[in-house]
Amino acid sequence: MSRPDSAETERLLRDLEQRVQQYPFRTVRITGSRDELLGLFLLSKDVRLAEGELQTALAGVIRREPAAAETGGAWSAGEIEGGNLEEVLASQIEHTRQTRLPCALILLETDAPAGAPAGMPAAIVDLVRAAVRRSDILLRCDAGRLAVILPSISLREATECAERIRSVLARELRLGEDDAPAVTASIGIGLCYASDRISAETFAARVAQELERARQQGGNRVCRVIDSRAESSCQVSVEERTELFSIFLKDRHS
């Protein structure tokens, strides 16, 4: 089957827009920079939104494409500068629920020397970018933090990735003579499973706690959210074993 061209796609969307009118949905057009119809946003008429809320919801799907001059053409697919962490993370958590593959979040903060300009230095972003996969998403956050969202990854791989970032930064950011790091990085890491029912805000807050823990321990460390569901609550307890073995105990006593 041949792939439909953009005119066919637009006809299909307009047809769909007409048909949706029979149902209790409102449609909002998603258009490109040349006003071409790219898609439709369907919203149940049962959902009551205050003035301005729809625009707020749609703001999450607007993605600024950085100009080549601004970035030097260095930003590859999947990297977003200045994106909203919670919005991008919420999208990845939804992806995790659909694919059943966990996603990870790494938060990185540096302790720059006194007098250094605020924000995450470009050199550090470049080093982090080189240490992650092309499919991972980099975001500059507030307070000079850098976030890396790693879709479809196991806890082991995500931890290895965080450790790779830590060791690259420790190796590359040295002050020459005394071999002391010019910048120390603190890293927090967490994993979200498909079965986790947490919001992006909660997930980000948990990882931020680990980042803070790493920072308080003196930097140049990776601290990981201990996943109680994966590691602790799945342990078979003494009570469970006792009940499982009850049939064999009867044999022993008889």
Binding site: Y193, A194, S195, R229, A230, C234, L244, F248
Partner: peptide, 22 residues
């Protein structure tokens, strides 16, 4: 199978599948 190790391991598997994958 009817032995303590099989019961424990089967139960552990189910517990992990519930905990990690719902």
């Amino acid at each position: 199978s009817p032995d303590p190790t099989s019961l424990t391991d089967a139960y552990a598997l189910i517990k992990v599948l519930r905990g990690r994958y719902a």
